[in-house]
Simulated assay, not measured.
Amino acid sequence: MTDRIEQTKALASVPRMKVLEWLKEPRRHFIHQESGDPETIGVCVTLIAAKLDMSQPTVSRHLEILRRAGFVTVRRIGQWSYYTRSAMGISEYGDWINDNL
C-alpha cells in the first residue's frame, strides 16, 4: 500500500502541482517536444525543467518524489527520461481522500 502521508507531502509543492497540471494535457503544454508525441511517450525532463525555470537536478528530485508517490511514471529511452501522469495513482489517492476525510 502506498504511504498516504508521503503522497500528501508530494502534493505540498507548487512546482510539483504545476508538473501534474501540465502532464494532464501534455500536448497542450509541451507541443514543441521534437523527440516524440508527449501524450504517447511522456515529456522529457529537460522540457519540464525549462518550463519550471529550474535546474534539471532540482526538477529531477521533484519528479522522483512524484514517482515514489505514484503520481507519475517514468520511461527511459536511451539517455532521456520521459514522464507521464499516473491517472490511476491520482485517482486512487482521491478515492482514499474521499473515503477517509
Rank of each mutant, 00 (worst) to 15 (best):
M1R: 11
M1S: 15
D3P: 08
R4S: 00
R4M: 10
E6L: 15
T8Y: 13
T8A: 14
T8H: 10
K9Y: 12
L11F: 10
L11W: 10
A12Y: 06
A12R: 13
A12N: 13
V14I: 15
V14F: 08
P15F: 06
R16P: 15
M17P: 01
K18L: 13
K18A: 08
K18V: 03
V19Q: 01
V19K: 00
L20Y: 06
L20M: 12
L20D: 05
L20H: 09
L20S: 05
E21N: 03
W22H: 07
W22A: 05
L23I: 02
L23T: 04
L23G: 01
E25H: 14
E25D: 15
E25K: 14
E25I: 00
P26A: 04
P26Q: 04
R27T: 08
H29I: 04
F30Y: 14
F30D: 03
H32L: 07
Q33V: 01
Q33K: 01
Q33F: 03
Q33E: 04
Q33S: 03
Q33L: 01
E34L: 15
S35P: 00
S35M: 06
S35K: 12
D37K: 11
P38D: 11
P38Y: 13
E39H: 10
E39V: 03
T40L: 03
G42A: 15
G42M: 14
V43H: 07
V45C: 02
V45D: 08
V45H: 03
T46F: 07
L47D: 13
L47A: 07
I48E: 05
I48D: 05
I48F: 10
A49W: 00
A49G: 05
A49S: 15
A50P: 02
A50V: 03
A50W: 03
K51F: 05
K51M: 15
M54G: 00
T58P: 00
V59P: 02
V59D: 01
S60V: 02
S60W: 02
R61P: 00
R61M: 04
R61T: 07
E64A: 11
E64F: 09
L66M: 11
R68D: 15
A69E: 06
A69C: 07
A69G: 13
A69L: 08
G70L: 11
G70Q: 09
G70M: 10
F71N: 14
F71S: 14
V72C: 13
T73N: 12
T73F: 11
V74P: 01
V74A: 11
V74I: 06
R76G: 12
R76Y: 06
R76W: 06
I77V: 14
G78Y: 13
G78N: 14
Q79S: 12
Q79A: 12
Q79H: 14
W80L: 10
W80P: 00
W80I: 05
W80M: 09
S81T: 02
S81L: 03
Y82P: 08
Y82C: 08
Y82D: 06
Y82A: 07
Y83G: 03
Y83C: 04
Y83F: 15
T84W: 00
T84R: 15
S86A: 07
G89H: 08
I90K: 09
S91M: 10
S91V: 07
E92S: 08
E92N: 13
Y93P: 02
Y93A: 07
Y93I: 04
G94D: 05
G94C: 14
D95S: 05
D95G: 00
W96I: 05
W96A: 11
I97F: 09
N98S: 09
N98M: 08
N98H: 01
N98K: 06
N100L: 04
N100G: 01
